[in-house]
């Protein structure tokens, strides 16, 4: 797979909806960078958080001045990890990953047959995420000199976490703020969120709490593909039909994510499929098995810290 994005040198004058979305996201990223000293961005390797990573390079002129955080469940599709490490080197990214070593060692996972899917997500994603962010569990950082992941000496908790959540993904995400506070216990109080208006966000927070920042809240799945196409953003090949008439629409762990029947081979074909084709009225996460087990939404998982 080639990872070098072609520079887009076209004049690009008219302000269209993608420019508006881009500007708002860049503005939010810059507010986050100013407001939070311990700032990190979650990178799931999927299309949304990769667009987010691209927007960070837009906001900071080719630099990404904070670490990217990846939670490795060890069940990710192998191409995803290869793609991650390629981009880390090529773009000089500061990448940290964390994982739930205990659960993996004790084989307390769904693929091991020990727990159900939702519990597995809770252990390998939510628990790993909260403990990686807080610094309670070890973190591994990519050393660009040795080209190895090394145990990170810093255990500082992150106080600002940028995530690629979109409002149109499912019900609970449509309730999110751009800057969404989480309590010391990592809980999200949906009913009592801070007001947010006129480009003023919650960047002040009590000790022990942290804030999640959602620059992609206004983007739709279609916008994401339109932008990937326009900017020529490198994405994992799993999103495209490799010749067997199927591809992934949403990427997760191999045991719980299924490809969909679709012949789209590139972002342009996916856009057509989303605008007018069979996917127009099919939920994006229909290939994700854990959603169905959580009562049709991600609410239980998300209140406790799931992204």
């Amino acid at each position: 797979m080639t990872l070098t994005a072609r520079a887009v040198a076209t004049g690009h004058v008219a302000t269209d909806h993608l420019d508006q979305l881009e500007s708002r996201s860049v503005h939010i990223l810059r507010e986050a960078y100013h407001g939070f000293k311990q700032l990190g961005m979650l990178w799931s390797i999927g299309k949304d958080s990769t667009v987010l990573l691209w927007l960070a390079r837009k906001a900071f002129y080719g630099h990404v001045p904070f670490p990217l955080i990846h939670i490795d469940t060890s069940y990710k599709i192998p191409e995803m990890i290869r793609y991650r490490d390629c981009l880390v080197e090529e773009w000089g990214l500061n990448l940290i990953y964390g994982e739930n070593r205990d659960a993996l060692a004790a084989r307390r996972t769904f693929p091991d047959g020990a727990v159900d899917r939702v519990t597995c997500c809770g252990l390998l994603k939510t628990e790993a995420l909260t403990n990686t962010l807080s610094g309670e569990w070890p973190r591994w950082r990519f050393n660009h000199a040795s080209k190895q992941y090394e145990l990170d000496s810093s255990r500082e908790p992150f106080t600002g976490i940028i995530a690629g959540v979109r409002a149109d993904e499912e019900g609970s995400r449509s309730k999110e703020r751009y800057f969404s506070p989480r309590s010391a216990a990592n809980l999200w109080d949906v009913g009592d969120q801070p007001p947010e208006f006129w480009n003023q966000y919650k960047t002040e927070f009590a000790p022990g709490t942290h804030v999640r920042i959602h620059p992609l809240l206004d983007w739709t799945e279609l916008n994401i593909w339109e932008y990937i196409e326009r900017e020529k953003i490198p994405t994992v090949a799993l999103y495209y039909d490799q010749g067997d008439g199927s591809r992934y629409r949403s990427l997760g762990c191999a045991p719980c994510t299924n490809p969909i029947r679709s012949p789209s081979r590139n972002p342009a074909e996916i856009m057509v499929e989303l605008r007018s084709g069979r996917l127009r009225n099919v939920a994006e996460r229909s290939g994700r098995a854990q959603d169905k087990e959580d009562g049709g939404g991600l609410e239980t998982l998300r209140r406790e810290g799931y992204m």
Partner: peptide, 28 residues
């Protein structure tokens, strides 16, 4: 009112964002 507790309370808590499309444009 996609959230479970809203269904039980019967009131809308937050400014939920949803999208719909007319022949003219997409509305958020």
């Amino acid at each position: 009112d996609a959230l479970k507790d809203e269904r039980s309370q019967g009131i809308t808590i937050d400014s939920a964002r949803v999208f719909f499309t007319s022949p003219r444009r997409t509305y958020v």
